[in-house]
């Protein structure tokens, strides 16, 4: 099931290498190591120049460590990520606690360079390393009655200073429809730039659903539950008027408090220009069919 999706390479043939391989991508390629050499090629070909390691790891929303953008980088270091296990339960053939190392042994980790669009109207491009969620769900064996997948973030108040405040109803929970979860774009990321994913980005493994707002991509996952009904999700519980279950990136449906028509790509400095937000964050070709016939202003 791995390798079901690759970056679009069509532009690569017409773009001379010295034009698209910028210094930044050289650095990126170097950091990623020999196994990932050539990272700049497909990235540049689809107009995706990845953000720097510093950008990706210093500007985070991970409210369990505080609501400031720099809080996760400051405080997430205290989170113990080894040993780690993920409990897979609910409507599965082989429920149980799966050790992180055992999962990794069975999964195929690949590089996925995705746009990442936060509901707050900023965005990045992240070169994730991860495996398809579908592969993990197949490992556990999805039972026929399952229709949704629920996820839960670790909750350790001793290690997560932000959880002392009721910013959200802890632990953080998220959910996907089963077909969304099984989609080849949906991955569990374990690395960035070929390195282990840092704690502030959701170590040791976090969901990445690139066509949805960032908060759907739940971090530091400890439980995955297959269910027959739509599971509760944290931001929807906190404010159902503002955050729907689907939360697909959609420039035509505004957040009640701000426009979603444009976004600011992190890294442009003080005079960074806004860019237009794309429907499904630019992944419409791959995922629009999942929502055929649905009113996306109602199921936002």
């Amino acid at each position: 099931m791995a390798h079901r999706w690759t970056n679009d390479l069509t532009d690569r043939d017409v773009t001379p290498e010295d034009v698209y391989l910028t210094r930044r991508q050289w650095l990126a390629g170097a950091a990623a190591g020999a196994a990932l050499a050539g990272i700049g090629g497909p990235a540049a070909a689809s107009g995706l120049e990845p953000n720097t390691w510093d950008e990706i790891t210093s500007y985070n929303n991970y409210y369990e460590f505080g609501t400031g953008k720099d809080d996760p980088a400051m405080y997430a270091g205290g989170l113990t990520t080894a040993p780690w296990s993920v409990t897979i339960d609910g409507l599965v053939e082989r429920p149980g606690a799966y050790a992180f190392e055992d999962i990794l042994k069975k999964m195929t980790v690949e590089e996925r360079i995705y746009r990442f669009r936060c509901v707050e109207a900023w965005s990045m491009v992240v070169p994730w390393n991860g495996f398809e969620l579908a592969d993990l769900l197949d490992m556990a064996g999805v039972k026929p009655g399952a229709r949704y997948v629920a996820f839960e973030t670790v909750l350790r108040p001793d290690e997560m200073p932000g959880t002392r405040f009721p910013v959200l109803d802890w632990p953080y929970v998220e959910g996907l429809r089963l077909d969304e979860a099984m989609h080849p774009l949906t991955i569990l990321a374990t690395g960035i730039y070929g390195r282990d994913i840092p704690n502030q980005n959701g170590a040791p493994l976090r969901l990445v659903v690139p066509w949805k707002y960032g908060f759907k991509s739940i971090k530091s996952v400890v439980r995955i539950t297959l269910t027959d009904s739509e599971p509760p999700t944290s931001w929807n519980k906190a404010n159902p008027r503002e955050y729907g279950f689907y939360s697909n990136v959609n420039p035509e449906v505004d957040h009640p408090r701000w426009s979603q028509a444009t976004e600011r790509r992190i890294g442009g400095g003080l005079f960074s220009k806004r860019i237009e937000t794309q429907m499904f964050n630019g992944y419409g070709k791959d995922v629009a069919a999942l929502y055929d016939g649905m009113d996306l202003t109602k199921f936002f």
Binding site: D54, E55, S58, Y59, K69, D70, W122, R264, I266, G267, G269, L270, S272
Partner: peptide, 15 residues
């Protein structure tokens, strides 16, 4: 600070 990186990678919102 905003112009020189002292306010982080998203200086506009920070400022």
């Amino acid at each position: 600070m905003g112009a020189t990186g002292g306010l982080g990678v998203e200086p506009i919102k920070a400022l």
